[in-house]
């Protein structure tokens, strides 16, 4: 009986640890994921980067589509400043064939992505980061102690677009980091498409 309770407790603990993922201030692990060009990409490849805008996104999700051009703009502006966009597709393509590797290749070449679009085949990185939906952004700052999570959440507070007074959360966070400041807003939420997990 005691053993059972212990197992239950352990199960509960691992579930909650899994559900939480990173918090602001945590060190993010590096990865080695396959890009649409067939090569693998790691954060360590970016020797001169000051940090990263890691975006969990995908092809099929209407909210990801709504943000696609804004993700492209982020890379155009911030890659040169030392914060490149790294896009990761976390979805199991058996649920959404539109999210298959071939369709990722198609999408990125049609839209002329200037950033890598990686596939997280095992979903291990998605789980480690704690991404739950697309799009879901993690802004990392490269430090001597590794890549530290400085912002988690939405790109801005205007998914549909068109609001001139929108708050650009990611831009604000990166701008602050570029001035050696901490972002004012470090966590936001947005409605998104739940990530499709592979059945174990």
């Amino acid at each position: 009986m005691k053993k059972l309770a212990l197992i239950a407790l352990l199960a509960l603990f691992s579930v909650s640890a899994f559900a939480q993922g990173y918090k602001v201030g945590d060190k993010a692990i590096d990865f080695k994921l396959k890009n649409v060009n067939g090569k693998t990409v790691s954060l360590a490849d970016y020797k001169s980067a000051k940090g990263f805008i890691v975006v969990f996104t995908c092809n099929h999700c209407p909210y990801a589509k709504a943000y696609e051009s804004r993700i492209m703009d982020l890379d155009k502006v911030y890659s040169a400043k030392g914060y490149p966009v790294i896009a990761i597709n976390p979805n199991d393509p058996t649920t959404y064939p539109e999210d298959s590797f071939d369709n990722m290749k198609k999408r990125s070449s049609e839209k002329k992505y200037t950033f890598p679009y990686l596939v997280d085949d095992t979903q291990a990185i998605t789980k480690a980061y704690g991404a739950t939906k697309t799009p879901h952004v993690f802004v990392l700052e490269k430090t001597l102690n590794g890549n530290i999570v400085e912002y988690i959440g939405a790109i801005d507070n205007d998914t549909e677009g068109g609001d001139a007074n929108k708050i650009k959360y990611v831009e604000n966070a990166v701008n602050a980091l570029l001035m050696n400041k901490k972002p004012e807003t470090t966590m936001t939420k947005a409605v998104g498409c739940g990530i499709k997990w592979k059945s174990i």
Partner: peptide
């Protein structure tokens, strides 16, 4: 609500915003 993100926590703090 234009800013749907702002109400997610009010509906439930444990909700990340993923649907459903």
């Amino acid at each position: 609500e234009k800013d749907q993100g702002s109400v997610i926590d009010k509906i439930d703090e444990s909700w990340s915003g993923a649907l459903p």
